[in-house]
Design a protein around this nucleic acid. Structure first.
Length: 138
DNA sequence: GCCAACGTTGGC
DNA sequence: GCCAACGTTGGC
């Protein structure tokens, strides 16, 4: 069965719009063990939510894993990995952190419980709920 | 701009 | 191996 994920990025650093313009990107630069382990568990075709931290604080788009984990070319030392992500579609309606925190089905998300993690798993139930709130179909 | 939460580093 | 100090992230 396919897994689902959420990646976090500040829009000032690399926005969803830029991601779409690029047609995909290598998700490099992750330097946190928990996030790295999540990158390693990603498989091509897995669904990935794109979350804007900072000014937006909302899930803004749906992407998918295009290539599984490989050694991060930007890491000078250490055992770090990158994956390749490809945009699928923007949300019809961004799903804000405020909405997530107020939703009984979503308030237990890792996004809420561990706000500092930048790559995290999303359950199938959470995934479907956010797609619904985002007025988006896979 | 502040601060809480979390991870990392380094002294012991 | 413990823990205090420090740095970073991200929400408010």
């Amino acid at each position: 069965m396919k897994n689902h994920w959420l990646v976090k990025q500040e829009p000032e650093a690399y926005s969803w719009q830029t991601f779409v313009q690029d047609g995909g990107t290598a998700w490099t630069g992750v330097r946190n063990y928990q996030a790295r382990n999540n990158l390693r568990a990603m498989k091509p075709g897995d669904g990935v939510f794109y979350y804007h931290s900072g000014v937006d604080k909302a899930v803004v788009g749906l992407a998918e894993v295009a290539k599984e984990a490989y050694p991060d070319p930007t890491a000078k030392e250490g055992d770090w990995v990158a994956v390749e992500l490809k945009p699928l579609k923007p949300f019809g309606q961004p799903v804000s952190l405020q909405v997530i925190k107020g939703d009984p089905l979503l308030k237990q998300m890792v996004l809420v419980r561990n706000s500092r993690l930048s790559v995290m798993p999303v359950t199938a139930q959470e995934f479907n709920r956010i797609l619904t709130l985002g007025k988006t179909k896979r």
